[in-house]
Amino acid sequence: MKYLLVLLVVVIAVGIWRSNRRRAEQVARPAAQRETRLQPPQDMVACARCGLHLPRSDALALGGPAQPTYYCCAEHRAQGPA
Rank of each mutant, 00 (worst) to 15 (best):
R37H: 09
A78S: 13
C50E: 11
E75T: 11
A32R: 15
M44H: 01
R56W: 00
A32V: 05
R18F: 06
E25M: 11
K2A: 14
L52A: 13
P65I: 03
K2W: 02
V45G: 01
Q42A: 11
Q67G: 04
P68D: 01
D58H: 12
A66C: 03
C47G: 05
D43L: 14
A78L: 12
R29H: 04
L5W: 01
A66P: 02
L38W: 02
A61V: 06
V9L: 13
V45H: 00
G15M: 08
A24V: 03
A46D: 08
Q26M: 15
A13I: 08
Y3H: 11
G51E: 02
G64I: 02
P55L: 02
R21F: 08
V14N: 04
K2M: 04
Q33H: 09
V14I: 14
L5F: 06
P68Y: 05
C50Q: 00
T36N: 07
E75W: 06
Y70A: 04
L52S: 00
L8E: 01
R18L: 14
R22D: 09
A32N: 05
A82F: 05
R77M: 15
A59E: 03
R23A: 12
T36Y: 04
N20A: 05
R21C: 05
P55M: 13
A46F: 10
V6M: 04
P68M: 11
W17H: 11
P65H: 06
Q42C: 05
V27E: 05
